[in-house]
Amino acid sequence: MASFGLVSQVERDFVERGVDVGIRADGRARDDYRPPRVELGLVSQSDGSARCQLGDGTDVLVSVRCELGQADPAADDRGRLAVSVECSPSASQRFEGRGADDLNTELSEAVTRALTGPQSGLNLRQLCIVPGMHCWVLNIDAIVLNYGGNVVDALLIATRAALADTRVPRTVVQEMEDGAMDFEVDDDVENAQPLEHVHNVPLCVTANKIGAGYVLDATLTEELCASARLHVTVNSSGQVCAAQKSGDGAIEPSLLMAMLQAAKEQARRLLEQQDEQIRRHETEIAAKRARGEPVKRPSIFV
C-alpha cells in the first residue's frame, strides 16, 4: 500500500525496538486491537449504512443502496454487489484530485475480494427479482474520512455492519398475459426485508511486519515502519476466506504462520463483538417500535 507521510529514521528505530520488546507507542501490546466504535443507520437516504472509528485516527463511513439492474447472464438467478471506496481529500492533502486513485483501487479490490466469490456467504439469490431479467444491485460506497492506519479492517467492519442494517425493498412480481413478467417495487419502508446470512460475511484483520516481529491494528506511524503487511479475512465458522500479503518486504515462514494465527484469533473476537452489537441494536429498535416510540436515526454530526 502506498505510504502517506514521512517517518524519520529515529522514529523508525523507536517503533522497531518497541515492537521487539512488545511495547507500542500508545501502550498497547502487539496483539491488542483498538476497540472499534460502530454506529448504524446514519445516512437516511441510503438503504443501510454504518460508520466505524478505530481509536482517534481512522474513520470510515459505508453506505449501501439498492438499485434495479440487469441480471448478469452468467448468474441470472442472483443479484450482485458493486463496491467503490474513496479516500476523501479531507483525510489528507495527498488525496486531492487523482492522488488517491491507486489507493482507492487497492481498497476497492480488497473489499470486493472479501464480499464476492464463494467465501462471501451472502445469499445473492434473495436479490433476484425476475430471473434472467431484473435483479437488485447493492451499491456499496465507502468513504475514508480520516486515515489513521488499518483502514482495510475498518472498511470491512463498517461494511458488515452496513449490510446488517440494510433493508431491501420488497417487490411484487406479476405474470402478464403474454408470459412476460412485470414487477412493482413496494415503497413502504416497513415492508423492506433484511439481507439473509449477513453473519456469514467475513472480517479482515491486518498484521504488519515491523523489524522481526508483527503488530495487529497498526497506527499510521507503525504502518510507515512496516516492511510487509498480511491481510487475513476470516468468517464466523473460523475458516480463512482470503489472505494476501502486500508491501515490499519478505516474511519468513514461521513468522508468517504466527501472523496468520494471531490474525485469525483476533478476527474471531471481532466477529463475536460485532454480532453482539448488531443483536443489541435490533432489540432496541424492536422494543422502541413495540412501545410506539419513533425510531430516530442518529445524525452523523451529533
Binding site: 480463512v240 476466506c241 500479503k245 519468513e252 508468517l256 496468520l260
Partner: peptide, 23 residues
C-alpha cells in the same frame, strides 16, 4: 535459498489446518 516468503495470495474458505498444510 533464504526461505523468506515474498508473496501470499489465498482465496476461498478453508480450515486453518488445511491452510497451514497448503503453505
Amino acid at each position: 535459498s533464504l526461505g523468506d516468503v515474498t508473496h501470499l495470495l489465498h482465496r476461498g474458505p478453508v480450515d486453518w489446518a488445511q491452510m497451514s498444510r497448503a503453505v
